[in-house]
């Protein structure tokens, strides 16, 4: 019996996401620190073939659930499949990437397997043989290191904390774990994935740069007028030319729900901060933002940070950004777009 079980799921194309490959690297690393072995369980369409693609990762055993019922993410079928894998493998430690699919079903699987669960894990360490996990509380404000004596212990791993595993494919010889799904577990029907039209797609997790727009873009400017159409063109032009992902402050997207004229290509999905996301990108550029949320919380996992603000006293950017440009973002971004060609 392996000491660690890593649970993965395939994507709609039957392959593993970057987050899944990163969690393999985390598992390999932890397994060597604990001096034990690990197994891999895969859920989803084409799970067996996907297991072959990671056959060289060092797992002592592979398990798969590839029933039609788990072809698409659905709580009731995923929770049953994940519980079956945890129980079959009998491991003390269960790792899984913190994807939306596992964030949904793993708490229930932990409950059914009589396990403990912690999520959003950003680091794992072994000290004197004790496994310690790090995670943030109060939305990226307080960093804690914690351990648990009870087992099994399920840990959902954040993306971006390890480089993706790379290694040889082969024959995983995965054991198929039989799971029976009742009609009651299929009351939810998956209709598919809805994505915005390509030119409206502003959230790009793989982009090198996060561009954060604040409410200042929709405020009266020095000439006493609003320039919302200009703002819209400048931001969209920049996103296209720089291939950046778009983040927003809460104030900016709230204007939209309040029915005011604002930037139509943004929604709450773009919001960064305490009640938004904390995306991971190599660089971040905040524009027309004031406040702790976009700068401190929204930027927590951004390495290099710059800001453009007219207000030299914007205290939140200072100490959080590497560079703050005291300038008019309309003028600067227009020029940047010109230079990006």
């Amino acid at each position: 019996m392996a000491d660690i079980l890593l649970v993965l799921h395939t994507g709609s194309d039957g392959s593993f996401s970057k987050g899944a490959l990163e969690s393999i690297a985390t598992t390999v690393d932890l397994s060597s620190k604990l001096g034990g072995s690990f197994a891999v369980g895969v859920i989803g369409a084409g799970a067996g073939a996907a297991a072959d693609t990671i056959a060289g990762c060092g797992a002592e055993k592979f398990y798969v659930v590839e029933d039609e019922a788990v072809a698409a993410p659905r709580y009731s079928s995923d929770v049953k499949a994940a519980t079956a894998l945890i129980q079959k493998a009998g491991a003390q430690i269960v790792l899984a990437p913190g994807s939306s699919r596992f964030a949904r079903c793993m708490p229930g699987a932990a409950y059914r397997a009589g396990a403990q669960i912690d999520t959003h894990i950003v680091a794992l360490a072994v000290e004197a043989g004790v496994l310690k996990a790090q995670r943030w509380y109060y939305r990226q404000r307080i960093l804690t290191t914690l351990s648990r004596a009870a087992r099994p212990w399920v840990l959902l791993i954040e993306g971006g904390i390890q480089p993706a595993w790379q290694g040889a494919a082969g024959v995983a010889d995965a054991e198929s774990v039989a799971v029976e799904f009742t009609d009651a577990e299929l009351r939810t029907t998956i209709k598919g994935i809805e994505s915005p039209a390509t030119d409206a797609q502003t959230i790009r997790p793989d982009a090198a740069l996060l561009f954060v727009a604040g409410a200042g873009w929709t405020k009266k400017q020095a000439d006493g007028a609003y320039h919302i159409r200009d703002a819209s063109n400048l931001i969209q032009g920049f996103l296209k030319k720089a291939g950046a992902s778009l983040g927003s402050s809460k104030s900016l997207v709230d204007l939209q729900s309040d029915g005011q004229e604002t930037l139509s290509f943004m929604s709450h999905m773009n919001q960064v901060g305490q009640t938004g996301t904390t995306p991971r990108h190599a660089k971040g550029l905040s524009t027309c933002c004031h406040g702790e949320e976009p700068h401190a919380v929204g930027w927590r996992f951004i390495n290099e940070r710059r800001a453009i603000n007219m207000d030299a006293n914007c205290g939140w950017a200072q100490g959080k950004a590497d560079v703050v440009y005291i300038a008019n973002a309309f003028e600067v971004i227009a020029k940047v777009n010109e230079l990006l060609g």
Partner: peptide, 28 residues
Amino acid sequence: GINFEKSEVPAQKRATRIVKDVSADVIA
């Protein structure tokens, strides 16, 4: 059953460079 070993607000202060009174062209 959680044993909290440590909880802290990590010091995250960066040495921010303020760029002021510079033209939009240079900043861009």
